[in-house]
Nucleic acid binder design. Structure first.
Lengths: 351, 351
DNA sequence: CGCACAATTGAGAGTTATCAATTGCGGTGG
DNA sequence: CCACCGCAATTGATAACTCTCAATTGTGCG
């Protein structure tokens, strides 16, 4: 197989050297551009298999480079990896949506870099060789086939979001719909005092962020990755066309929305009139139903903060209730999570 | 004009005499059937302009008569009025959905009877003479034209629901969508302990009860008339066809659902974390925005119970908060309702 | 007039939030 | 390798809030 060609766009020469040295270890062919402008030119000329690009650069920064490349039909599907400084990403709560397929934070381990590069090259190969077979069709992550929709996903490569990464923030303008392919995402709203209420958990096969597209409004909730996740990003235009042209897809969405309304209505009633004790019991039961995501049965892995933000209470109140439940022999608290011991009694409490 | 022909189906002869005597005063032509079976036969033969029918009868009761007539293309649009006993209707909370165009409770005043009959005859005339022009197009109650939808409404006559009548109850099977043409409706959910949470107010132009039709599930909330109202009833089949065939209508519904989701999400956040004081302020402001329904500006007419059921608290807590607001000069409490005196400060409190 | 029901007010109990302090844990840097 | 830092989890004490129960007043209606 031909050696893969990688384009590195990085203005800091020391850093560039560093990256190049690491990549050379695996026999990649490296092109280096010292700024965004020449990076663009080099990309068009060399047609690399993958692009690594620093975010912070004079003149044309990484976002600019990405933006321009995404308009280029020959390069828009080339894997694009950001090199981001610690300070920028450490504060993930700033709501950045990187827009690249993946990213690496500086400083980084050589192994991390190689891994990310390899994964991205492999995925790109898969997409190419599979032709029009959807990448999601290969693994069984995705429930009930989407037909039209999968066709649309083919032309999208999934982006990576690491644990705690923000996918979008309440109030931001909405440009895309999101489709979870791997991992787990929470959506939430924050009130005036900074208290958070979780509005939903989203596993593979779940759609995110489409309501603002319909309403032509900013995001009404935020989304954050609870674990490393892969998410396909469908442009607003494509989504709207799909809704408007495909009857089955439109109907599917109407049903999604309806279910959402019924569920939210029930939650309203619970939060309005049930005690914390009742809501905790209910939340544990629901979490237990849903979150068999790979883990043992009857095992709930969530931070106290997240559980309390589902219930709409403080961690302290939650914790007291959990302690009560533990003392009453209803649940078991281990290092790794919660296990329900007496489901019938919990059900009784939750009503 | 020809004398109108009215068919009375009533097994109690004394009651029948009574009704006939009253109706004769206005020169109606009366046919009388002493039971449901002959009533049906007489209806088909005489083709009356209006039918008055007792609910409680041996063999075939009023509901049975109505059901059979509604299948008859020649009679299904004939105004149909129920005569119901006090005991049945007094307990309106039993969730009956009468299904008739209107009803009269025994014992009744002669004037009431005549009024109801006259109103129904007039409406039927209007429908006939207007041909394919929607009756709703004549008055400006209904916002932004519905196009396809109005055509569908033509073939429906509105049913009357009196104040406090139940339109549908949570848990009941859902057969129809409802379209408010006049009056005001509240939808609400009730929890295990009988506490009520109001999920919405619906004015003319508003749709009700369609979500269960989409989901093929029982009603997820109940609906009750807050004042005398007129509601068109669209059969499930018609609604589903409309959703599936009309692009614009489907889109319209997607938007309705989306708005609902955004609004409910915000309410969740409020109820979860805001104090009663904050929620009362918010509710007053919102009620003030919406409920200029004919009444004076800045004037809120709602029972304390309804306000507290919007907020998710008890009437006592609500009332204490209202008393506070009154003492602080933020609102004025009169015999007929509440008036907001200091909107800016209320806004500040609500956040 | 009296009944049924909505609104109001009071007193006390129960629940939940807040503030504060402590413990435990994973990762970092020396 | 270990001390240290930051963060999550836990526990305690207290304050604040809201509900419940009870009693009273007001109001529309037969």
């Amino acid at each position: 197989m031909l050696a893969k060609k990688i384009l590195l766009i990085e203005d800091n020469l020391e850093m560039a050297e560093n990256v190049i040295n690491i990549l050379r270890l695996v026999n990649y062919k490296i092109e280096h551009a010292p700024n965004g402008i020449t990076g663009l030119a080099l990309a068009k000329q060399a047609q690399p298999d993958l692009i690594i690009c620093d975010v912070v650069m004079p003149d044309l920064d990484g976002f600019g480079v990405l933006h321009i490349l995404s308009k280029d039909s020959g390069l828009c599907h080339t894997p694009f990896i950001f090199l981001t400084g610690r300070t920028e990403t450490n504060d993930r709560r700033s709501g950045m949506n990187l827009g690249a397929d993946d990213y690496i934070t500086k400083p980084f381990e050589g192994l991390d870099l190689l891994k990310v590069v390899e994964v991205r090259l492999n995925k790109a190969d898969q997409l190419k060789s599979n032709g029009h077979v959807s990448p999601t069709a290969n693994n069984s992550d995705v429930p009930n086939g989407e037909m039209d929709f999968e066709k649309l996903l083919i032309h999208q490569h999934a982006r990576t979001f690491r644990k705690k990464d923000i996918i979008f923030l309440e109030g931001q303008a909405a440009f895309d719909m999101y489709y979870v392919m791997k991992g787990e995402i929470k959506t939430y709203k924050v009130n005036h005092e900074g208290k958070e209420l979780i509005t939903g958990f989203h596993n593979p096969g779940s759609y995110l962020g489409y309501i603002p597209l319909i309403e032509e409004k900013p995001h009404h909730e935020s989304a954050e990755a609870l674990e490393d996740s892969e998410i396909a990003i469908i442009p607003k235009q494509d989504f709207l066309e799909l809704i408007n042209s495909s009857r089955t897809f439109g109907q599917k969405f109407i049903r999604l929305l309806s279910q959402n309304i019924i569920a939210t209505g029930n939650r309203l009633l619970d939060i309005a009139y049930q005690s914390v004790r009742q809501r905790v019991a209910g939340a544990l039961l629901k979490a237990n139903q849903i979150s068999h995501h790979g883990s043992e049965k009857d095992f709930i892995i969530m931070t106290r903060k997240d559980i309390s933000n589902v219930i709409g209470t403080t961690t302290e109140s939650l914790n007291r209730t959990l302690a009560d439940f533990r003392d009453e022999g209803l649940i078991e608290v281990t290092d790794h999570g919660l296990r329900i011991l007496n489901q019938p009694k919990l059900i009784r409490i939750s009503k």
